[in-house]
């Protein structure tokens, strides 16, 4: 079997058999979103106006929360050293793990989004734009997060530090992601410039983040 596919399959099996991972993240996402009306009041027009932004922020937090174990479990039981010995460059291992994480966590979050958008009274006409903007932007969240996860792999209770390191890097992703929905609402279509910028950020992160994350892992394993 192709080593890259083998890595994806391993990650998938681990995520499925360990239980909890994706399901808990989706629950966290749903609860954060449903907490908002309690903080802001049940004003439906207000919720409709800020809904896409709130969903983007909840998505960011949910992604961040699920990232801190991305490399840590493998680091602790030594399988990261085995992965580094695979006939794949460590950069490809990082890319594979990030892809598996996105498929296992990002995609379920995306599937839950329409339901939560309904709860926040987001107009159904904006659903395609919201979903497409998340589809374009969330890979960047996972990839940038993988750099933070690699940097904090040997730090005990590194989750909070990971958030501190990665959240500033998430700012452009959130700006363009939310803007893509706003522009679509203003009649510029789903594939507006902001959406293209979101996709560009994801591609840019896919090109550079694996190198940074692999460098961080090497220094932590050495």
């Amino acid at each position: 079997m192709n080593p890259f596919l083998a890595l994806l399959w391993r990650e998938h099996l681990l995520a499925r058999r360990q239980g909890g991972g994706a399901g808990l993240t989706v629950l966290f996402f749903a609860m954060t979103v449903s907490l908002l009306p309690f903080g802001l009041g049940p004003d439906l027009p207000l919720l409709a106006a800020i809904g896409p932004g709130m969903i983007w922020i909840a998505m960011t937090l949910a992604t961040l929360l699920s990232l801190d174990r991305l490399f840590q479990a493998d680091y602790e039981d030594g399988s990261l050293d085995q992965l580094a010995l695979m006939p794949l460059p460590l950069e490809a291992v990082v890319l594979g793990k990030a892809l598996a994480h996105w498929l296992g966590t990002g995609l379920p979050l995306l599937l839950a989004t329409p339901l939560l958008a309904l709860l926040l009274n987001v107009p159904p006409a904006l659903f395609p734009a919201l979903i497409v903007s998340l589809l374009a932007g969330t890979p960047a969240l996972t990839l940038l997060g993988s750099v933070g996860a690699a940097l904090t792999v040997c730090v005990r209770r590194g989750g909070l530090l990971l958030a501190l390191l990665v959240l500033p890097l998430y700012v452009p992703v959130v700006i363009f992601g939310v803007n893509a929905v706003v522009q679509a609402g203003a009649g510029e279509g789903v594939f507006n410039p902001s959406l293209l910028f979101s996709a560009a950020l994801s591609i840019f992160a896919a090109a550079l983040a694996p190198f940074a994350a692999a460098a961080a892992l090497r220094l932590n394993m050495g």
């Binding site: 940038l144 750099v147 890097l169």
Partner: peptide, 11 residues
């Protein structure tokens, strides 16, 4: 030092 260096370059 090296971790901070990687972070600084990313930032």
């Amino acid at each position: 030092a090296r971790a901070a260096a990687v972070l600084a370059l990313v930032g």
